[in-house]
């Protein structure tokens, strides 16, 4: 397996693996799963570009859809799915593109472009020309009755 990021090991499992020496591009296909720490990404086809030296910088997962699940720094579950996901282990950022949807507890975001920063749990959704739709569940304390 290619060299991995400094602090946390990235494990990849798949049915098949093909590595192209010339381009340095590795392709995993069939029940591909990538895990790093609490993060798990599943999909059908993973493309890994490994530069001549140094750690893996980009993993691109395609799936029908590709999915990920993680736990926020405050311990809350978060998951999402998209046509394809770009994971940058160095900056711990996942970019979801194409019918992307992310949900944290029961709050959901959907757009064609969502970025999830796994380090500080910040979600950035939408891009020019790509509207974002979100549905949040208000806490029980604010049920809409005006203050007595």
């Amino acid at each position: 397996a290619p060299p991995v990021a400094r602090d946390a090991p990235v494990h990849i499992s798949a049915d098949r693996f093909h590595f192209d020496q010339k381009t340095g591009v590795g392709i995993y296909t069939g029940h591909v799963r990538v895990t790093q720490n609490t993060l798990t990404i599943d999909g059908d086809r993973l493309t890994v570009v490994a530069p001549p030296k140094g750690p893996v910088e980009r993993l691109t997962m395609d799936g029908n859809p590709a999915t990920f699940s993680d736990v926020t720094p405050k311990g809350k579950p978060v998951k999402g799915h998209a046509a394809h996901m770009l994971y940058l282990p160095d900056s711990r950022q996942i970019q979801l593109q194409g019918q992307a949807e992310l949900s944290q507890e029961r709050n959901t975001f959907s757009s064609t472009h969502i970025v999830y920063d796994t380090k500080n749990g910040v979600v950035t959704a939408g891009a020019p020309g790509h509207r974002v739709e979100a549905t949040l569940v208000p806490d029980q304390g604010t049920t809409g009755k005006s203050a007595p």
Binding site: Q104, F109, N120, V132
Partner: peptide, 15 residues
């Protein structure tokens, strides 16, 4: 429903 529905060009949700 009583959920909060949002439409926007960009959304930043922090923890």
């Amino acid at each position: 429903d009583h959920l909060v529905h949002i439409h926007a060009d960009r959304a930043f949700l922090n923890p």
